[in-house]
Amino acid sequence: MAVERDPSPAFAAFAHPERLVSTEWLAEHLGDPGLVVVESDEDVLLYETGHIEGAVKIDWHTDLNDPVTRDYVDGAGFAALVGGKGIGRDTTVVIYGDKNNWWAAYALWVFTLFGHEDVRLLDGGRAKWEAEGRPYTTEVPAPAAVEYPVVERDDSVERAYKEDVLAAIGTVPLVDVRSPEEYVGDRTTAPAYPEESALRAGHIPTARNVPWARAVAEDGTFKPLSELDAIYRDEIGLKEGDDVIAYCRIGERSSHTWFVLTHLLGFQNVRNYDGSWTEWGSAVRVPIVKGAEPGEAP
């Protein structure tokens, strides 16, 4: 019962154009049967100040993370969460959010761990919707709950653990998507973010630094394929068939890069290391490199 895809020529060159919708497309399809729009933001209250009509809210921290273990909710938890938002297994889900879709991409990645097939991003997110003067409402929808099957999360394909990353150093390309300051080791968090997440600063040996925002154009939409190719293939040398692991501080910015590499550039084996620097930078006896050079495998 999937909703038709956005035929925008702007997306045609991407490996999986069906993963993006434009603001125009969404405005026309709001209310379509089989479509649920989800807002996912860094700021937990932003949705309450106004959101796209009919959109439901999923918070990365209070909804998608397990409140006790540092992990995501399990199959039953996910089924209860999304079923309660009116999302069925065959529903087309369009996610958008603040900060150029950081958290929207993160939510999309978690949906993917549960094998939800048709989940798309609103290209440009909240910023573009607003810039175009499109309306918001504060009315919170009360969707009828639907039965979502309990599907256990599959972490083996899109998710990397610390041990995977340790084993990958020197063989699998690592992409560090944090700011240059974090990569070099001047600080452990993004500029203007709390300095509290890790005990050591620097990067994982061999990782190349491509700040996530380089994939985004001025208006918040993804850059065209040719520009993305120039960054990820020409500049840091990712090749067809490469396995890739992306990381950041807690896995949210790297979800954004995971989306770019997987759905826009078509790499088949991209994993997001969600433990990222808050785990690596505090782990005992893992190798760390400081400075602007990627460094060698130990």
């Binding site: 700021d43 937990v44 209250l45 932003l46 309450e48 100040t49 603040d98």
Partner: peptide, 9 residues
Amino acid sequence: PREAPTTRG
């Protein structure tokens, strides 16, 4: 800023 309602709160 307005787009940071939690912090404003």
